[in-house]
Write a protein that binds this DNA or RNA. Sequence first.
DNA 1: TTTAAATTTGCCGTTTAGTGCAAGATATTT
DNA 2: AAATATCTTGCACTAAACGGCAAATTTAAA
Lengths: 249, 249
Amino acid sequence: MLKEERQQTILNEVELHNRILLTDIAETLDVSIDTVRRDVKELDSEQKLRKVHGGAISLGFTTSSARNTNIYALAEKTKIAEKALSLLKEGSVIFVDGGTTCLELARLIPIDLELTCFTLSLPVAMELSSKPNVTVIFIGGQISKDAQISIGANAIHNLSEIKVDYSFIGTGYVDSQYGLTEFDWDIVQLKKAVIKAAKKTVLLCISEKLNSQHRYKTCDINAINTMITELAPENEMLKSFRTHDIHLL
Amino acid sequence: MLKEERQQTILNEVELHNRILLTDIAETLDVSIDTVRRDVKELDSEQKLRKVHGGAISLGFTTSSARNTNIYALAEKTKIAEKALSLLKEGSVIFVDGGTTCLELARLIPIDLELTCFTLSLPVAMELSSKPNVTVIFIGGQISKDAQISIGANAIHNLSEIKVDYSFIGTGYVDSQYGLTEFDWDIVQLKKAVIKAAKKTVLLCISEKLNSQHRYKTCDINAINTMITELAPENEMLKSFRTHDIHLL
DNA sequence: TTTAAATTTGCCGTTTAGTGCAAGATATTT
DNA sequence: AAATATCTTGCACTAAACGGCAAATTTAAA
């Protein structure tokens, strides 16, 4: 077997599976592991793949991690935000939660749409304050450093004094059986207040989060009026949610 | 499983849920918790996430927002902010106003200084939320689009319920005769509330603003306890302020 | 074709990286 | 203050990487 041919096979495997083990390749090509190692080393120096301890990974795989430093799964979140926009009418009064998906929603609000938006999230408030036709009201409180949102009793109390048409919320975890759950107790209290302050609650949630759960429960799945994922409403993954009284979008 | 692959998965989980437990990850990846810990430690040092006790959290927006490099008279404002810092003691409770000078103050707060900071300003809140030892409390209200601060009755009311050691405020205009004045009526109302909420009020003001005035009056110059400019306290330009009972810094 | 040089490959001993385990130190919760 | 969880550190074990060497293969030249 020619060296060139072998290296091509290695590249193929890497592109196909995003990663390979040197030992696997050595076996399938029936050459010594040293040979494979040398090949991979060479391909690495030619920038055709990246060699790591024990194997190699595709370049595309790593650069996606670099993109991740911006926003994870941005395309999906943008799609969700676009669907959410369709619910908004001129003059609506809404609440926008924190998190990257809701931030994306804030970002996509059309320049000419007149809205009143409540939020707890500093980044969302910053984003919305650039929209001339949006009245932004920030729910004050102690600022959580992780999420950059207001938390605590003050925030919850302030929420108790408002009523909005729609709340657009995210969640840490969601499951058709266990409902919405979170990592933090504080956040659960806050989300409960948000849901209570809304005539209708809209959950924005990328499909990757479906069927996951955690320690603290925000609400039953029935508490959600509309659930938006990046999937088509008739998608098979949403089957377990269709039995509930939820509008899928 | 390759180390790289594992770290990628960890990043995914962190981005997805904003927060993860080391034990959860160890279980889903079927590796020891030590390995996960080491991975997370490594990712932390690469600035891809933040390690916390027991888990990791997404950097999200915490990466301090791209610093606006074209702030007018930045050098002067930095100097003022540095002087203001000398007033702060461990455990102080302060208010930080909006404006670029106060933002600079927020930026320069040492990483190890423990403080409680109230603010009306979104950018100041964002900046402060990156300081681990600062408790940030945002005074909510309607957001003014120009200044990115809370304004209105709600904000004023919230201010009426607090008392801080120091208020660090800016002003549109200042004059030794006419005191502090502003262009906007709303802002004046707000600043009055801020001054009332403080045991001591510190004015941060570049010398260029000295001896200027406008339509609406915030307060007499006597209402200010300490005035900080970029000039030395004995500078001739500050002569007219020396007759008052103000501490010049 | 034969021979010599250069390259490639496999093998082996040594060195290094990655992983899991366990004991003691810190943090966090009750 | 006690109990629990998490972190740190050091250690042992394994897998992988490295470098040198020699056999095998290819290439180039006589």
